[in-house]
């Protein structure tokens, strides 16, 4: 792409107001998170906090018990990410590169799950988890989240593998490798971008997942970050200063993760998702 580019600044000037509008809510959130409850209650969205209430962050951390929540969330994300990869990569490979009767239909059966919102099946899902003794266990949440993410993960991996030339696997087969070996030695090393896209997308949705942990994780010691935010809201009143600062706390690790990996993520989407 060596085309001569026009000057950049007119477009930047055009984008700045858009930038302000799109990121405005963040500015509002961070400002509000540094106000006292009474200042928030005064309801002037443009007023600055009189005094920066960093205390809100300490309070949210302590009252919400964020220390253990963050640990649980990390375990949750790690479990889902690893398992998603272990489950989706081989299946994606099978659906892309192995020929068998009913391949198309198997794929569609998986894709079907993409269209079912979890809220619609939560009660029977709870029953299944209950019968397996998985209520109030992180394992239960992880398994259900992985299952819920299978359609998309499989879709992504299959799309990527479809784009890998068959000659590569042919060569490996002639060398006597079986499918599992081809997958781990040839395909996986090639698919870093797709894998990182899959990892980031599943990490993100797990980190932010509220509904399933709400129903499954009962003991405070087992809960994840989004459930901590619930602790600041009671039937008749909400501690907004804690909700806002807690939200920022929840949000920071994700932003950092994203900024660190954004180049890979975009590449992964480019090469992974787009071949569907």
């Amino acid at each position: 792409m060596s085309r001569r580019k026009p000057a950049e600044w007119p477009m930047v000037a055009l984008l700045l107001p858009v930038f302000a509008i799109i990121l405005g809510p963040f500015l509002w959130l961070v400002t509000s998170s540094l106000k006292t409850e009474a200042e928030i209650g005064r309801g002037d969205p443009f007023a600055l906090p009189k005094q920066l209430m960093w205390q809100n962050y300490a309070d949210a951390w302590n009252i919400g018990g964020f220390g253990s929540l963050i640990g649980n969330s990390l375990i949750n994300v790690a479990g889902v990410v690893v398992l998603t990869l272990i489950v989706c990569a081989p299946a994606g490979y099978a659906l892309a590169k192995i020929r068998f009767a009913g391949r198309e239909w198997t794929f569609y059966a998986f894709i079907f799950g993409l269209t079912i919102p979890i809220q619609a099946i939560i009660i029977p899902l709870y029953q299944v988890l209950f019968n397996l003794g998985l209520i109030n266990s992180m394992a239960g949440v992880v398994l259900a989240q992985v299952a819920n993410g299978i359609p998309f993960g499989l879709f992504l991996m299959r799309s990527f593998f479809l784009g890998v030339p068959n000659e590569l696997s042919e060569a490996a087969r002639i060398d006597g490798a079986n499918h599992f070996q081809i997958l781990t030695r040839v395909f996986l090393p090639l698919s870093q971008p797709a894998i990182s896209a899959l990892l980031i997308i599943s990490a993100l949705s797990t980190w932010n997942d509220f509904f399933l942990p709400l129903v499954v994780l009962i003991s405070p010691g087992n809960q994840t970050l989004p459930l901590g935010l619930v602790r600041f809201a009671s039937t008749y009143s909400t501690d907004f200063r804690l909700v806002f600062s807690g939200t920022v706390i929840t949000f920071l690790p994700v932003i950092i993760l994203y900024i660190l990996t954004q180049r890979r993520f975009t590449e992964g989407l480019t090469q992974g998702a787009l071949k569907g």
């Binding site: 209950f130 109030n136 709400l214 009962i218 459930l227 619930v230 602790r231 039937t235």
Partner: peptide, 22 residues
């Protein structure tokens, strides 16, 4: 004390009671 995750209206109480950790 166990911080409530909700009420009977949103199923949180039922889920808590059914679990072993209620």
């Amino acid at each position: 004390y166990m911080p409530p995750t909700g009420t009977i209206s949103n199923g949180a109480v039922q889920a808590a009671i059914q679990s072993d950790a209620g």
